[in-house]
Design a binder for these strands. Structure first.
Lengths: 273, 273
DNA sequence: TATGATATTAATAAAATGTTAATAAGAGAA
DNA sequence: TTCTCTTATTAACATTTTATTAATATCATA
C-alpha cells in the first residue's frame, strides 16, 4: 500500500488489526519504620519497610501484593497511573517516584498477558495521616544472600514470612542478574522479584544521590540519618566515615534533641545543592 | 461477585472488557566506529555509533528511527522481541542486551497509544557480516550540553543532523531528569529521547561495570581501549589513571601490534573475574 | 641515523578513606 | 551530689586510592 500523507495513512489504519495487551503499574513504596521502643541506638532497630496490600479477589486471592492497578490507555501515562495509585493508598501526592523496571513474563498473570511497569516511591511515614484498609506496612527484618539466593523476611507485626529469589548473573554482564522465584507463598504475581529490584535500586542509589532525605522528616539527628543508611545498606558504618559522606548534604540547625538518656544531639536539615 | 476458585473466576473473566494497548520494543544499538584513516592516535577519531533505520511508511515516513517493532503479546516477552529485532537487523544473536526505560507519552505515536520498552545493545562491529537495507551506522560526532540543553550531532557520512533535548531536573531528585524535545527534524517518534537515555546509561555504567568489552574485539591495545573510554565518557583520560582503572579487567597476551609508525603496543584481552 | 609518534612505567604529590581513640554531655542510679 | 551508662562529636593518625609529572622505550619513516 502506498499512502501520500499521514492523514491518508491514518484513515486506513485500524489498531484492532493487531493484538494488544493490558498494562499495570505496581509501586514499591518504601519508608523507614520508627520503632520508639528504646531510647538507645544500639537497641533500637530502625528498618526499611514496604507497603503491601491484601488481595480480595482472584487471582492470588488473600495474598499480599504491591499497590497497583491497570492503566487506562486512553487517558493516563504510566506515571499518571503511579501517582493515582499512590494517592489512593497513601493520600500523598507529591513524593519521590521513579520508574523501576518493566516486568513482562508471559504467564505472570493467569488471566491474560499483562505487562507491569513498576515504580519505586519513597516516603516519610510521618507525613501519613490515614490508615488504608487492607494495606499494611511490612518491615524488612532480614535480607540474606547465600549462594546466589536472596531470602527476604518481612513482618507487619501479625504476619511474618520469607520469600527467596535466585539471582543468575546475565551473560556479558558483571552487574545484571535474572531473578527467579525459589520460594514464595505469600506474594502475588512476581511481586517478590519487583520488591527485590526495588531494594537493590535504593541500595545502589543511596551511594550517589540524595534520595535518602525523601524518607526523613525535616529535622533529624546524624545518628538517626546514619541508622537509615545502615538499614538500607544492610551494614554498620563507622561514624567518621559516615559523617564525611553526608557532610555536604546536611546543614546544622540550632535545635537540639534532648531527653534521650545521653548527650543531646544536634538536629540537622537536608541542604540541596 | 464472589468466586470460590481461580478457575471459576477465570471462566467468568473477559479480557476484552478492558481497554488495551500496543507495545513496541525499540533498541539503541551502540558500537564503536573504527576509522582507519590515520595511524596516529591523536589524529584518528574513534567514535560511538548508533544504528538507525529509515522508515518507509507512515507515520514519520522517510525519517530515521531506532530498530524496533511491535511485540506479539501471546508469544513473546519484550526481551524476546528485542532479540528478534536484533537478529533481523544485525544477524547477531548472542550479544549484550539490557532493558533501558519504558517510554509512554500518550501522543508519541499518532496512530494510537503505543508504549515502548527500550533496550540498549552493545556490539563489536567486527562481528557484523551483512549490511542491512535501509539501516545505517551514525557516528555520534558531538554531544554538547549547555544550559540544560543537550545537542547531539550524528552523521552516517552522507547525512549529518543535530537534535536537541532539554533536561529538567525532577523534583526530589539530584540525578533524574525529564527529557523533552527542543529540536528534532530527523528522528521519528521520541527516539531522540531514547538515544540520549541510552548514551547516559552507557556513560554511567562504563565506570562500574565491564560493558565496554562488549564493544571490543578479542585482542586490543590499551591505547585502543583508552580511546573507547574517552569516546564514551566524552573526555580525555590521563594514561596512568586509565591504566589503573582497567588493570584488573585485562590481561597481557604475548602478541604485539606493529606497523603503526611508533613503538609497538602489546595486545591485551578481557579478563573476566 | 635522527626524528616523530605513541607505549609503558616509575616516582612523587595530593586527596580520599579507614581506623583508633579522646572528649563531651544529658539521664538516671547510687 | 557524684558516678556510670550511653551516644555525640571531633581530632589525630594510618592507609589506600587517585592525580600528576616526567622519564625511558621502541618502531616507522624520512
Amino acid at each position: 500500500m502506498n499512502y501520500n500523507s499521514l492523514e491518508e495513512f491514518l484513515s486506513d489504519y485500524n489498531p484492532n488489526d493487531y493484538e494488544r495487551l493490558s498494562m499495570t503499574c505496581d509501586i514499591v513504596i518504601f519508608s523507614v519504620s520508627d520503632q520508639e521502643s528504646s531510647n538507645y541506638r544500639k537497641t533500637s532497630r530502625k528498618m526499611m519497610s514496604v507497603l503491601l496490600v491484601k488481595r480480595d479477589e482472584y487471582p492470588y486471592k488473600d495474598m499480599w501484593c504491591l499497590p497497583g492497578g491497570f492503566i487506562n490507555p486512553s487517558t493516563e501515562t504510566l506515571e499518571d497511573a503511579a501517582k493515582r495509585i499512590l494517592k489512593r493508598e497513601t493520600n500523598l501526592s507529591d513524593i519521590y517516584l521513579e520508574q523501576l523496571y518493566t516486568f513482562d513474563g508471559i504467564k505472570r498473570d493467569p488471566r491474560m498477558r499483562v505487562v507491569s511497569c513498576s515504580y519505586v516511591a519513597l516516603i516519610d511515614k510521618k507525613k501519613l495521616k490515614q490508615k488504608v484498609v487492607n494495606a499494611s506496612w511490612f518491615d524488612i527484618i532480614d535480607i540474606e544472600e547465600k549462594d546466589g539466593i536472596v531470602s527476604i523476611t518481612v513482618s507487619n507485626g501479625d504476619e511474618t514470612f520469607t520469600f527467596s529469589i535466585k539471582k543468575t548473573l546475565r551473560k556479558y554482564s558483571t552487574d545484571r542478574y535474572d531473578f527467579s522465584t525459589v520460594k514464595n507463598n505469600n506474594l502475588a504475581f512476581d511481586h517478590d522479584l519487583v520488591i527485590l529490584s526495588g531494594i537493590e535500586r535504593i541500595r545502589n542509589k543511596i551511594n550517589y544521590t540524595d534520595i535518602v532525605f525523601n524518607m526523613m522528616g525535616e529535622y533529624f539527628t546524624l545518628g538517626e540519618l546514619q541508622q537509615v543508611y545502615e538499614v538500607i545498606l544492610g551494614k554498620k558504618l563507622l561514624d567518621p566515615a559516615f559523617r564525611r559522606i553526608i557532610a555536604d548534604k546536611v546543614e546544622k540547625t540550632d535545635k537540639m534533641k534532648t531527653g534521650e538518656g545521653h548527650r543531646p544531639s544536634r538536629l540537622f536539615r537536608y541542604r540541596k545543592r
